[in-house]
Amino acid sequence: MTETRAVTTAGPQRGSRRSGAGGGVREKRAMPAYYWMVWPALALFAFFHTLPVLAGVFFSFTNYAGFGTWEFVGLSNYQNLFRDDRVLAAYGFSFGFAIVATILTNVISLAIALGLNAKIVARNTFRGIFFVPYVIAILVIGYVFQFLFSNSLPKILPGIPVIADNMLSNPDWAWVPIVILAVWQASAFAIIIYLSGLQTIPQELYEAASIDGAKPWRMFRSITFPLISAFFTINMVLSLKGFLQVFDHIVALTNGGPGTATESITLLIYKGGFTGGEFAYQTANAVIFVIVITVVSLFQFRVLQRREADF
C-alpha cells in the first residue's frame, strides 16, 4: 500500500513538471508573436505622432513660415508670445469658456444621470437618446445650431433684443451659443460616466439611510457624491481638457468672430500656422499650450484626488 501511494503521488508530480515545462515552451513561443503585434503599432505611433511632435518643437525655434527657407531664431517666438495681445486674448477666452462649460456640463450631466438611474419607465431608451449627441459629427450639429441662433430664434423670440439681433454677431454674447452647443454635445459622454459610477453604489446604503430618516439631499451629500467622487474627477479633468481645445464648435458657429471675440487658442494656431504664414510662431504657441494643458490636468488630478481621499 505504501509503495502504491508513493507511485500514485509521484505520477502527478512528474506530469505537472512536464506540463510546466510545456507551458514554459509555449510562453517562449508566444513571445515573438507578441512582439510582432506590438512593434508595428509602436512604429506607426512614433511615425505619425512622436516624429511630428519633435519636428514641431524643432521648428518652433526657427522662423519657418511653412514654406521656403528658414533660420534659427532661438527663443524669440516664445518671448513674442507673451507680448502678443491676440494670443493672450485667445488664452483668456479659452479658459473662460472651458471653466463655464465644464461646470455646466457636470451639473447638468449629474442631474440627468441621477434621474436616469432612478426607477423610471424606458430607462435604457433614454440612455441611448442622451448619448446621441456624442456620436454625431459636431460640425454638422454646429451648422444646425448656427441656423437656429441666426434665423429661427430671432423670429421665434423677437421680443428679446439680444436674441432678435442675432447673438452670433454680438461680440459680448457670441460665446453663449458656443457654450450651449459644447455643453449639449459633451453632456452625453459625461452622463454615461456618471451612470457607471451610480450603478456601483449598493442600494442597501440608501435603504439604511431612509430607515434612519435621511432626506434625498442628505443621501446625495453623504452617500452618492462621496462614492462617485472618482467618476467626478474623471469627468472634470476630461471636460476641462476637451473644452480648452475647443475648435469645431467655434468654426461652425462664428469662425472666431465677430472680429476675434470668440477666437480660441486652437483656432488661432490653425489660422496663423496654416493660412497666416506663422508656422513656426504658432508651433511655439502649440508647445506652450500642450504644457499648459498638462499642468492644468495634473493640478486638477492632485486637488480632486485629495478630496477623494478625504471621503
Rank of each mutant, 00 (worst) to 15 (best):
H249E: 15
L238H: 02
A252V: 12
E263T: 11
A261T: 13
R221V: 08
V237N: 09
F225I: 13
I265Y: 01
T260H: 10
S264R: 00
P258G: 02
L244A: 10
I228K: 09
I269F: 05
S239T: 14
S222L: 05
A261S: 15
I234L: 15
T254F: 09
V246N: 04
L240D: 01
A252Q: 11
R218Q: 14
I265G: 07
F232K: 08
S229G: 08
G259S: 13
I228W: 04
I265P: 03
L244D: 09
L240P: 02
G242W: 05
W217P: 01
S239N: 14
I250D: 09
A252E: 07
G257Y: 14
G259N: 12
I228G: 04
W217M: 13
G242M: 04
L227P: 10
L253K: 10
L267F: 08
A230E: 13
E263N: 10
D248V: 02
M236A: 15
T224N: 06
S229Y: 05
T233A: 12
M236W: 05
L244N: 08
F247Q: 04
T266Y: 01
N255I: 03
T233W: 03
I228C: 06
I228R: 10
A230R: 13
S222F: 03
A252D: 07
T262F: 02
M219H: 13
T260A: 06
T254A: 08
I223F: 00
V237K: 05
W217R: 11
L240I: 15
G259W: 11
N235S: 15
T254G: 09
T262L: 03
P258K: 14
T254K: 06
T266E: 07
I223E: 09
F225H: 11
R218P: 00
N255Y: 09
S239K: 12
F232C: 06
D248Y: 00
I269G: 02
G257F: 12
L240V: 03
L244F: 12
N235H: 03
S239V: 12
M236L: 12
K241P: 00
N235L: 03
I265N: 07
P258L: 14
L244I: 08
F243L: 05
I223M: 04
L268I: 03
